[in-house]
């Protein structure tokens, strides 16, 4: 499960561009994760410039 820390996220779209599954979508300032398509690969967690994403067991 990928968790978005909304207090940290600055809705920049960097993570959206690297997600191989297209599971992320920026709805203006709200980062939405489609948990049905997310494969928990963790790429988005690595790329975030602010560290707003966390992989949870």
């Amino acid at each position: 499960m990928i968790e978005v820390h909304r207090e940290i996220c600055a809705y920049c779209g960097c993570c959206v561009s690297v997600c191989p599954e297209g599971a992320l979508e920026l709805v203006d300032a709200y980062l939405d994760i489609d948990t049905n398509t997310c494969k928990n690969c963790g790429i988005c967690v690595r790329v975030c410039p602010l560290g707003a994403l966390e992989a949870k067991k």
Binding site: G13, V16, S17, C19, G22, E25, V47
Partner: peptide
């Protein structure tokens, strides 16, 4: 649609940027 480039992806073009 900028760096996110989701629209073309929805149309079937792979726009994923390697990490």
């Amino acid at each position: 649609d900028g760096v996110e480039s989701k629209f073309a992806r929805w149309c079937g073009v792979d726009t994923t940027v390697p990490l």
